[in-house]
């Protein structure tokens, strides 16, 4: 197990390093950063001055090490546009995104795993068809459209839920459902397919031959094995939600990282963009690592050799 953890940690570290290099070089993708900062009307002297004061005149590896060193200490620089410390901005926006993505993935899993299991127990039954319909609709509906429909009915017509500006937990309900619903079909179908396969397996027949109760057969023996691929998918989707909630955050005017990213792109605020990409990537790496750990816990073939 220790060997496996170390290996995964090593991989996570290498990915993080690669991400940091790519993120750092974002500054240079749109040309000379000093020119970009100085603005179009700037004279050569002004550009040179900016280049010097921001340290863009130093060799690139030195700049990278400097940037990385600061980033590791939590200093992501200043936003030229907002005139604020980037870390502060991100720290105020991050919780909203984490809550939104967390609720969304929880909603998706709570809906899709039981449905997938139920559908697998009785293939072609009413519940299976219902699940399939839900999956097809979920995959066909764009999430922004679904969000708007929900807003219209639950927010405007019935006035049950607030439609924007989250201040209370109720404000998170619709955005979480809108974001999570999109993930439901994939997770549900993978659960269903996994359960169908596992329920046909020889060790399930063994469990039944032992006279174990149906619930024990289903949950202890079948689901434990069928859920393993679902963990990986859910992790990928969770990472996706963290960064991909731009649309939902915009629609519901949630001050999260996605919304911030969208604003930042419009402003051309490169250091801020850089920081957002870095933070989201790191979260992604952490989530992947945790999913690997969870899978190792679930599947002893990974952890015990």
């Amino acid at each position: 197990m220790l060997k496996y953890i170390l290996k995964r940690l090593g991989v996570a570290f290498m990915v993080a390093l690669t991400v940091s290099v790519i993120t750092f070089s974002l500054i240079y993708v749109s040309g000379d950063p000093a020119v970009a900062l100085a603005g179009e009307a700037a004279s050569n002297d002004e550009i040179e001055h900016i280049r010097k004061s921001y340290g863009y005149d130093r060799p690139i590896p030195v700049q990278y090490m400097d940037w990385l060193g600061r980033a590791l200490q939590g200093d992501l620089g200043r936003s030229h546009y907002l005139k604020e410390d980037i870390s502060d901005v991100i720290l105020t926006r991050l919780p909203n995104t984490l809550i939104l993505a967390g609720c969304a993935i929880a909603f998706a899993l709570i809906l899709s795993i039981p449905l997938g299991v139920a559908a697998a127990i009785r293939p072609n039954s009413l519940i299976d068809r219902f699940a399939l319909t839900l999956a097809v609709v979920g995959q066909a509906l764009p999430s922004f459209w679904f969000a708007l429909i929900m807003m219209f009915f639950l927010g405007i017509q019935l006035r049950w839920l607030p439609i924007s500006r989250v201040e209370t937990w109720q404000g998170f309900i619709m955005p979480s459902i809108a974001l999570g619903y999109y993930v439901t079909p994939g997770v549900m179908r993978l659960t269903r397919a996994g359960m169908l396969e596992v329920l046909q397996s020889d060790y399930i027949r063994t469990a039944k031959a032992k006279g174990l109760r149906p619930m024990v057969v289903l949950f202890k023996h079948a689901l434990r094995n069928a859920i393993i691929p679902v963990v990986s998918l859910a992790a990928v989707q969770f990472g996706f939600m963290l960064g991909g909630s731009i649309v939902i955050e915009s629609i519901f005017a949630i001050n999260g990282l996605g919304f911030l990213a969208w604003e930042t792109i419009q402003r051309g605020d490169l250091p801020m963009m850089q920081a957002i990409v870095l933070v989201l990537s790191l979260f992604y790496i952490v989530i992947t690592f945790l999913a690997d750990m969870l899978n190792a816990f679930l599947d002893p073939r990974i952890r015990v050799t």
Partner: peptide, 23 residues
């Protein structure tokens, strides 16, 4: 039947490689 299976009668299958739960 679940009380009887594994208790009063037990079965051994053909495929030992896959008949035990890997988890």
């Amino acid at each position: 039947m679940t009380d009887i299976r594994g208790n009063k009668m037990a079965m051994i299958f053909q495929e030992p490689m896959t008949s035990l739960n890997p988890a």
